[in-house]
Design a binder for these strands. Structure first.
Lengths: 217, 217
DNA sequence: ATTTATTTTTAGTCTTGCCTAAAAAAATAT
DNA sequence: ATATTTTTTTAGGCAAGACTAAAAATAAAT
C-alpha cells in the first residue's frame, strides 16, 4: 500500500524527472514539496525499500517502472477529477487545484476508470495537461512555448504550465483562455516581454507570463 | 481543522447517539470503530477540547451542536457520493461503501453543494438512508421494520440498515431491491424467521435479515 | 455492605511523517 | 592541491493516532 505522503513524493519526483534529468536531488524534491531535505532523505529510503525509487546516497533519486506507473496513476486521477469539476460541477479552472489534490488520493481502480468513461475519455485537463491512460502513457505534447516562436507566428493557446489560482486569475482578467487564437507580434529585448495579439486586442505580457503559455501551431 | 480521524469518531458517536441515548460509552465507540477503548478516551478528550463533544470521565460522550453538524456534514458527503457512484458511475449498491468512506473526507463546501445540485438534490442514498441538507437536517424516517408489522401488511422496501457488501449481495441473490413491494405472510415463533411475499415468490428470511429491512406503508 | 466483575482511564510504547542541528560528502574556488 | 562553500545525510526529537498492560472507578452480585 502506497500512503498519501508517498504518493506526493512520487508525483514530485515524476514531475522533476520529466525534464530529462537522470536523477533528482533531494533538495529539489524538498523545494517542490515544501518540506526539508532531511525529510526527503527519510522518505526516499522508504520508497526505495518498496521498490518505487532508485536511490544512491548523495546521488539523487529516480523512479523505478513501478514508481513511475504509480505516479502516473495519481496524476491521471488528479487530471480526471479536474475535468469532472470543471465540466460537471461548474468549477472554474482556477478553483480546481486544491480539491483535485485531495481527490487524487482516493483508492479505487473502478472509480478512476468509470470516471474516465463518464467524462468521455478526455485527453487533456482544463489547463491543457495531458491525461495519462491506465498504463500511464499519453501522447507527446507538441505545443511550443511563446518565447520559442518567431515574430508573426500564430497558434492556439493549448497549455498553461502554471496552474496556481493567481496565475489563472491573471489570465481570466486579461480574457485569455485555452483554445484562443494568439499571434506573436513583438519581443522586447529590454525585459523579454512579448506583445501578442489576442482575439480582441493587443497586450504586452511579461517574460514570467510568457514562460507559461504554450501554443499549438 | 477537523482531522480525518476525528471525523470518523464524530460519525461513530453520531450514529450511536441516534438511538436516543444521552451519552455514548467509550467501549461502544471502540467497537463501532474497530479500535480500543483507550484510543477512544484519548480522542474524545481532543474532541472535547475542540468543542465538538461533551465528555465527563467515566460518564460517556455526547456531541455538541457543532460536533453534530460536523458529523452530519460527513454523512451528507458520504451519502451524496454513494448516489453519484451508483447513478453516474455504474457502481452497484454493494460496491459503494468503501469508496464513499474515503470520499466523505474531501474538504470543499463548494464540491458538496455542487455535487448535490448535479445529482438533482437526492433525498436518500442507494440504501434508503436519508441525506442531510446543508444544515444537517433531514425528514424523519417513517418506514417501519418488518419485525414490527402485522401479518398481512404490505409495503415498499425503502431502507436497508446494513450496508455491508455481504448483506447486500444476499439481497441481490434473492432478488430483493429498494422499491420492491413486500407482504408479510407469517412469523415463525421458533426462530423468529419471517415468510414474505416478494414480487415473484415467497421466501423465508431469518430474524437477522428481517431486522435490517424497513418498509414504507 | 462488601466482594467480584466490568468498564474506563492512565501510563508507557510504537509508527509515520515531519523537524532542527550537527556531521559528512561533494562541489567550487583559490 | 587545499580551503571554502554547498549539498546531503545522520542523529535526536516532536505530534498524531494507535496499542498493551496496569490502575482506578463504577456496576453487579452475594
Amino acid at each position: 500500500m502506497i500512503t498519501l505522503s508517498e504518493e506526493n513524493y512520487l508525483k514530485a519526483i515524476y514531475h522533476l524527472g520529466k525534464q530529462g534529468v537522470a536523477a533528482v536531488s533531494t533538495n529539489a524534491i524538498a523545494e517542490k514539496i515544501e518540506s526539508k531535505a532531511s525529510s526527503v532523505t527519510d522518505m526516499v529510503k522508504k520508497l526505495a525499500d518498496k521498490n518505487l525509487a532508485n536511490y544512491v546516497k548523495y546521488q539523487g533519486v529516480s523512479l523505478t517502472n513501478e514508481g513511475r506507473l504509480a505516479a502516473a496513476l495519481v496524476i491521471r486521477k488528479h487530471r480526471l477529477w479536474e475535468v469532472f469539476l470543471v465540466e460537471k460541477l461548474n468549477f472554474s479552472w482556477d478553483e480546481v487545484h486544491d480539491v483535485a489534490e485531495q481527490l487524487e488520493h482516493i483508492k479505487s481502480l473502478k472509480l478512476v476508470n468509470e470516471l474516465d468513461a463518464f467524462l468521455g475519455f478526455p485527453t487533456h485537463d482544463p489547463h491543457g495537461d495531458p491525461i495519462p491512460d491506465k498504463d500511464g502513457k499519453y501522447a507527446p505534447n507538441k505545443s511550443v512555448n511563446i518565447l520559442d516562436l518567431e515574430i508573426g507566428s500564430e497558434g492556439i493557446l493549448s497549455l498553461v504550465k502554471d496552474s496556481s489560482d493567481v496565475f489563472l486569475k491573471y489570465l481570466n482578467k486579461n480574457n485569455l483562455a485555452l483554445g484562443d487564437v494568439i499571434k506573436v507580434l513583438e519581443f522586447e529585448p529590454f525585459d523579454d516581454s512579448v506583445t501578442i495579439q489576442t482575439k480582441e486586442r493587443q497586450i504586452i505580457i511579461s517574460k514570467e507570463v510568457a514562460k507559461n503559455l504554450y501554443l499549438s501551431l
